[in-house]
Design a binder for these strands. Structure first.
Length: 554
RNA sequence: AGUUCCAUGGUGUAAUGGUAGCACAACAGUUUUUGGUUCUGUUUGUCUAGGUUCGAAUCCUGGUGGAACUACCA
């Protein structure tokens, strides 16, 4: 077992443990239930849960549900499902909404200590008072209200005496602070909205800054890990904890993970879903965890990816090729091999007896000696991949063409003698002769051939719908391009093949089963696949050094 | 412009004052009844200028470049 170096958070934690600052650590994963989790969240989940596991601490799942207008139960369920699927178990399950009464009490305490006031200013007035990066802010005329008056007004806000936007509760900090967040931030606002858990009990809701850190504190979170954009919130985070005199959780920030050829913000992903650019949150082209799952990714491959990219504080955009490497690496070990022909052309073995069939033995996975075998039917007529034949083959083309010889995987060596074309010049039939002594497993022909191709027996072939996916965007970083990110959507990201030929063994499958279609790539059975209408999603192609060769020549 | 953060091959990440390493990608070869897998090798990097030091990717100073912050979102 190789000793891996520590990332900066592990270093901090090990120091804390060594100093005795904490006896054990407690982290949390705090999603807002307003969308589905994506691969960036997966990295955060692996980080928070992984740290708890590594240092024998705890990790909570907490729904940060303080904005009733964007949050829904559907999202809560999908998030719990995704976390579990990734392989993690939370120690405690919480909702910020469970703390609403306590948070309200914290706000009252702040008012009583003279650290908060009710402000009647409009949003526009407050924005104007706030100043900006270059100008300091000015105090609101409501800033000097008495404690009693503030207490009274805040109680009335809770009672529902005022409409949305009429009043807010603000922390009284410093309108000249260089950090805009410290210029008397709003901590409670009025929203007469139905909450997915508390219903209509509340019409005032705490803001993120007055909920997150307090919830961390209530749960005795020792290391509250978030992304870099919250770094400016840390002084506020600390200020509230100090003024409230509650358990001092601390916030640590790391750089969010980005991936090439996709977008990674819930807002943008929601747009793709709402505007039907994709078929829902779990569309296999989406970088969501549910999308990756439907695409055929395994939890192991995602965890390994998270581990490989590591964490740091610098801006980054990871090549999606690394994610693909991780899933190939895992699927190569666990996926059974099957044969499927996606773009078929008929091959007839002229010297093979008509009407004869043979059951050939095929190993399920050469990487797994206990993987077993299956039977594959063979006959005089087979489907092969159109790509595997060239009328004028270049020297290094180790497939079929006039006079060329290949092995049919698990079967015989065949040589092409002739072929037929239609009026458009498309190959319609290929004629070969086979060598009876070359049968796989009992080959006495003594022949060595360079190429081996896959095939499906025509009379035995079953059919399936196969969906091929390409990257969702045409550019590496759509979010950083000029204009609307949706202008960069790849119009060819989905190709549906309604009728591919598959070997009979492939009909015995359930959603999420993983296969390697020999020489083509990894495929998984779609959630909507039935025995009457099989559907396979392409997870990722195999490495294709021939395609690379062709590209170089071209 | 103010504040804060960041800067190591094409990408991601190590080296915590002492040989710049690992993974992906790329390239060459090996093995192979998958042009897959395996295995071997190669190319490519410390933003810049000073300073401290026997010695600096690391510490200090200046510069340059990038990012974040100006929602009754989180």
């Amino acid at each position: 077992m190789e000793e891996r170096s520590l990332n900066f958070l592990e270093e901090i934690i090990e120091n804390h443990l060594a100093e005795g600052k904490y006896k054990n650590i407690h982290t949390r994963f705090p999603p807002e239930p307003n969308g589905y989790l994506h691969i960036g969240h997966a990295a955060s989940i692996c980080l928070n849960f992984g740290l708890a596991i590594k240092y024998k601490g705890q990790c909570n799942l907490r729904f940060d549900d303080t904005n009733p207008v964007t949050e829904e139960t559907e999202y809560v369920e999908s998030i719990m499902n995704d976390v579990k699927w990734l392989g993690f178990n939370w120690d405690e399950l919480h909702y910020t909404s469970d703390y609403f009464e306590e948070l309200y009490g914290f706000a009252v305490k702040l008012i009583e200590k003279g650290f908060a006031y009710v402000d009647d200013s409009t949003a526009e007035e407050m924005a104007a008072q706030k100043g900006d990066i270059n100008r300091t802010g000015v105090n609101s005329i409501y800033r000097s209200r008495s404690i009693d008056e503030n207490l009274q007004l805040f109680a009335e806000m809770r009672e529902g005496k005022y409409p949305d936007g009429a009043k807010v509760l603000r922390a009284k900090i410093d309108m000249e602070h260089p950090n805009l967040l410290m210029r008397d931030p709003i901590i409670y606002r009025i929203k007469h909205a139905h909450h997915h858990r508390t219903g209509d009990k509340w019409c005032v809701y705490p803001m993120y800054d007055f909920a997150h850190g307090q919830s961390d504190s209530i749960e005795n979170i020792t290391h509250s890990i978030c992304t870099l954009e919250f770094i400016h919130h840390r002084p506020l985070y600390d200020w509230f904890i100090e003024k409230l005199e509650i358990f001092p959780s601390h916030q640590y920030e790391f750089a969010r993970r980005n991936l090439t050829y996709t977008v990674m913000s819930k807002r943008k992903l929601l747009q793709l879903v709402n505007e039907k650019h994709v078929d829902g949150w779990d569309d296999p082209r989406m970088p969501t965890i549910s999308g990756l799952r439907r695409r055929g990714y395994t939890p192991e491959s995602i965890r390994n990816f998270a581990d490989t990219i590591g964490i740091a504080k610098r801006e980054n955009i990871t090549d999606v090729g690394l994610l693909e490497f991780c899933v190939r690496d895992h699927l190569n070990k666990i996926a059974d091999r099957r044969m499927a022909v996606l773009d078929p052309v008929k091959l007839i073995i002229t010297n093979y007896p008509e009407g004869q069939t043979e059951d050939l033995i095929a190993e399920n996975n050469p990487e797994n000696e206990n993987g077993g075998t299956r039977s594959v039917p063979f006959s005089r007529e087979i489907w092969i991949e159109r790509e595997d034949f060239m009328e004028d083959a270049p020297k290094k083309f180790f497939r079929l063409g006039p006079g060329l010889t290949v092995r049919l995987k698990y079967a015989y060596i065949v040589t092409c003698n002739d072929f037929k074309k239609d009026e458009h010049g498309n190959i319609t039939e290929i004629y070969c002769s086979y060598i009876p002594e070359s049968k796989s497993g009992s080959d006495t022909s003594g022949l060595k051939v360079k190429g081996t191709i896959h095939w499906v027996s025509v009379p035995h072939a079953k059919t399936a719908e196969v969906r091929l996916y390409d990257r969702l965007f045409k550019v590496e970083n759509p979010a950083s391009e000029e204009g609307d990110f949706k202008d960069y959507i790849n119009p060819d990201s989905l190709t549906i093949l309604p009728k591919a030929y598959i070997e009979p063994a492939l009909t015995e499958t359930n959603p999420l089963d993983k296969f390697q279609f020999l020489r083509l790539g990894y495929f998984t059975t779609d959630k909507n696949s039935t025995s009457g209408h099989l559907i396979f999603n392409k997870t990722v192609g195999l490495k294709d050094s021939w395609a690379k060769e062709v590209k170089k020549e071209g």
